[in-house]
Simulated scan of single mutants.
Amino acid sequence: MGIDAERQQMIRSNAAFAIEEMGELAGVAFGFNEGSVAWVEGFIERQREVLQGDTSEGLVNVLGCYLGEAIIAAVPDATWDEEPQIGLGVRFANGDMVFPFAKVTKQLREGLATGESVLSFYNVSIGYVATGQLGSADGSEAP
C-alpha cells in the first residue's frame, strides 16, 4: 500500500513550506514535534478569526501535510496511504489510520471551543492509535 513517489514528494514539499513559513511567524525553531504542533493549533485559531468560517483549501493542504508528517516523524513505521472512501491519511503498522486533513478542516470550521484540536489529534494519534493503547503523558500505561 501507500502512495506514489510523486504524491509523497508533494506532501513533503508542502510540509517543508509549512515549517519554513511557520518558523518565520513563530520566531522559534520549528519542526515536526509536539511544541510546533501546539503552535500550529494556535495559528489555526487565529486564522479562524480571519477566515470567518470559510476554509482555505490551500491552508488545509499545507497544514494537513505538516500535521501528517509530524505524526510520521513521531511514529517511524507510519506512512501516507489513501482510504478510497475517506481520502489521504497516515497508516500505522497496526493497520489503523488517521486523517490529518480532516482534522485541520474541523478545527478551522469549528474551533477549539467545540473540542477540535490538532494538538490532541497528534497526541492521540501517536499515543493511542499507533500503539493500540492509551498511555499517560509520561509514557506509562494508563490505568
Rank of each mutant, 00 (worst) to 15 (best):
M22P: 00
M22D: 02
M22N: 01
M22Y: 00
M22A: 03
G23L: 02
G23M: 03
G23F: 02
E24G: 10
E24D: 13
E24Q: 14
E24Y: 11
E24M: 12
L25P: 01
L25E: 13
A26T: 01
A26G: 10
A26L: 10
A26K: 13
G27P: 00
G27V: 00
G27Q: 01
G27W: 02
G27C: 02
G27R: 01
V28L: 06
V28M: 07
V28Y: 04
V28K: 07
A29W: 01
A29G: 07
A29L: 06
A29T: 08
F30Q: 00
F30K: 00
G31K: 09
F32L: 15
F32V: 02
N33S: 11
N33A: 13
N33T: 06
N33I: 04
N33H: 15
E34N: 13
E34I: 10
E34R: 15
E34W: 08
E34K: 15
G35F: 02
G35I: 02
G35Y: 01
S36N: 05
S36D: 04
S36Y: 03
V37A: 07
V37H: 06
V37L: 04
A38F: 07
A38P: 01
A38E: 13
A38Y: 06
A38G: 08
A38Q: 12
A38V: 01
W39P: 03
W39K: 05
W39A: 12
W39M: 10
V40M: 14
E41S: 13
E41M: 07
E41I: 03
E41L: 06
E41R: 10
E41V: 05
G42Q: 13
G42P: 05
G42M: 11
G42W: 05
G42V: 05
G42T: 12
G42L: 10
F43T: 02
F43K: 07
F43R: 08
F43A: 09
F43M: 11
F43P: 00
I44D: 01
I44V: 14
I44Y: 06
E45R: 10
E45A: 08
E45F: 06
E45Y: 05
R46I: 03
R46E: 10
Q47F: 03
Q47L: 14
Q47V: 05
Q47D: 02
Q47W: 07
R48V: 05
R48T: 03
R48E: 03
R48P: 02
V50G: 00
V50F: 13
V50L: 14
L51R: 06
L51E: 06
L51A: 14
Q52E: 14
G53P: 09
G53Y: 11
G53W: 09
G53S: 10
D54V: 05
D54T: 07
T55G: 07
T55R: 11
T55I: 14
T55H: 08
T55K: 09
S56F: 04
S56Q: 11
S56T: 01
S56V: 00
S56C: 11
E57T: 12
E57Y: 09
E57N: 11
G58M: 07
G58Q: 05
G58D: 08
G58N: 12
L59D: 02
V60I: 14
V60C: 05
V60G: 00
V60S: 02
N61H: 11
V62H: 05
V62Y: 04
V62W: 03
V62L: 11
V62D: 06
V62R: 13
V62C: 08
V62M: 15
V62A: 10
